[in-house]
Computed example of a mutant assay.
Amino acid sequence: MTHVVSDSCIRCRYTDCVDVCPVDCFKAGKDFLVIDPDECIDCAVCIPECPVNAIYAEEDLPDHLGHFVAINAKLAREWPLITKREQPHPEAEKWSTATNKLGTVTLQGS
């Protein structure tokens, strides 16, 4: 199993989770992060660090967010590795409580 970054991260892109990851499995796009399923060791230390509760163990991912397993796997092959905390998305606070944000971003490039 692996962990999955879900919809809540979109347009927030808090990177608190990156600082605690022991294996550097996070990849960064312009608007959100994903977890590389080939690198994640299922340690779960990232889950409590996310201020918007965007990270789930794959088996705990709600059904309506199941498509994020494939999104994380795909984008992890395309986006660059992130290994330290960065500033969140400029509009993170505004978007932190929004839902169904996937349609607000492009999934190509970083």
Score class of each variant (00 low, 15 high):
M1V: 06
M1P: 12
M1Y: 10
T2K: 12
T2R: 14
H3G: 00
H3L: 01
V5S: 07
V5L: 08
V5E: 09
V5N: 09
V5H: 08
V5Y: 08
S6D: 05
D7T: 03
D7M: 00
S8R: 12
C12L: 01
C12H: 04
R13H: 13
Y14C: 12
T15D: 10
T15S: 15
V18H: 00
D19M: 06
V20W: 01
V20A: 08
C21N: 07
P22M: 05
P22S: 09
V23Y: 11
V23L: 03
V23S: 07
K27T: 04
A28N: 06
G29D: 00
D31E: 14
F32W: 14
F32L: 03
L33S: 04
L33F: 06
L33C: 05
I35F: 10
D36Y: 10
D36A: 04
D36H: 04
D36T: 03
D38H: 08
E39T: 13
C40D: 12
I41Q: 12
C43G: 13
C43A: 13
A44G: 02
V45F: 11
I47L: 15
I47Q: 06
E49G: 02
C50R: 00
P51I: 03
V52Y: 13
N53P: 01
N53L: 08
A54N: 07
I55N: 04
A57H: 13
E58N: 07
E58F: 02
E58T: 04
E59T: 05
D60R: 02
D60Q: 12
D60M: 03
L61S: 06
L61G: 04
L61Y: 05
P62Q: 07
D63I: 03
D63W: 06
D63F: 10
D63A: 14
H64A: 09
H64M: 10
L65P: 01
L65V: 01
G66N: 13
G66Q: 11
H67F: 10
H67D: 12
F68L: 06
F68W: 15
F68E: 03
A70M: 03
I71V: 15
K74G: 06
L75K: 02
L75Y: 05
L75I: 06
A76L: 07
A76H: 08
A76S: 15
R77L: 11
R77D: 13
R77H: 12
E78A: 12
E78I: 05
W79I: 00
P80D: 02
L81H: 10
L81F: 06
L81Y: 06
T83I: 09
K84G: 05
R85K: 15
E86G: 10
E86Q: 14
E86I: 10
Q87F: 08
P88W: 11
P88V: 02
P90T: 04
E91I: 00
E91K: 12
E91A: 13
E91Y: 10
A92R: 08
A92G: 11
A92E: 12
E93K: 13
E93P: 03
E93D: 15
S96F: 06
T97A: 10
T97Q: 14
A98W: 07
A98Y: 11
T99C: 04
T99D: 12
N100T: 05
N100E: 15
K101S: 04
K101I: 01
K101Q: 07
L102D: 09
L102G: 14
G103Y: 07
T104F: 11
V105K: 01
V105L: 03
T106P: 01
T106E: 08
L107C: 07
Q108F: 09
G109Q: 07
S110Q: 09
S110N: 11
